[in-house]
């Protein structure tokens, strides 16, 4: 069992162990959907939502179904199925309540399914032997962390539209560089908290 306090896990997963900036998971949609701040917020919110609920559901299935039956090896396929189903649900939800966001996110909404950060959160939860409360807050924190990172990036990219970026670096190139710098800034917090 992991004895880290829930609050520490929550804060650490947002800042020091940010799933995007420290583990570099979920980069693909991060690179493509960080053009506009409102789209970034929308996708961030959707990812947070999916991550929170999939970690919770995955925890329950893993500990109450897979472990008692000694079927831990099924975890990957089950986790992915849960994520896929949940994304379908979110898609219906967003289409219903925010058609504009639905069309702005376009193909990236169903692609949350293959956002590795989400599967990553569920796998970290197993690896680090979190209990239910810890998993819940880890999922929520990781989601908020991912949303924070993409929103920061989108804000910077909107500003960068006015700056003179060298031609060869425009697009993904400069985004990668900036992401690296943000990641280093976030690691400045690393001494405060530690997650294992």
């Amino acid at each position: 069992m992991n004895s880290t306090p829930v609050f520490v896990i929550f804060v650490a997963s947002i800042f020091t162990n940010n799933i995007l900036l420290a583990s570099f998971l979920g980069m693909c949609s991060f690179l493509v959907c960080s053009n506009r701040i409102d789209t970034a917020f929308g996708l961030g919110a959707a990812v947070t939502f999916v991550m929170l609920f999939t970690t919770m559901i995955d925890y329950l299935i893993y500990h109450y179904v897979l472990i008692p039956l000694k079927l831990e090896f099924l975890s990957y396929i089950i986790f992915i199925a849960v994520i896929a189903a949940f994304v379908q649900f979110v898609e219906m939800f967003v289409e219903r309540f925010s058609p504009k966001l639905y069309y702005a996110l376009g193909i990236f909404l169903p692609l949350i399914t293959v956002n590795c950060a989400i599967l990553g959160a569920s796998l970290f939860m197993v690896l680090r032997k979190y209990n239910f409360a810890q998993s819940t807050f880890f999922g929520l924190g990781s989601g908020i962390g991912w949303a924070l990172a993409i929103a920061l990036m989108a804000g910077l990219r909107e500003k960068m539209g006015y700056s003179n970026v060298p031609a060869r670096l425009r697009g993904p190139g400069i985004v990668m560089l900036v992401t690296g710098i943000i990641a280093m800034a976030f690691m400045g917090f690393a001494g405060m908290l530690k997650l294992q």
Partner: peptide, 23 residues
């Protein structure tokens, strides 16, 4: 177990569709 979980997820989605995709 796999089949059971898949059926559960599918059932959940069908219910959600009835509720959410009903305009």
């Amino acid at each position: 177990v796999t089949v059971g979980i898949f059926i559960g997820l599918a059932a959940g989605l069908i219910i959600a569709e009835k509720r959410l995709a009903n305009y």
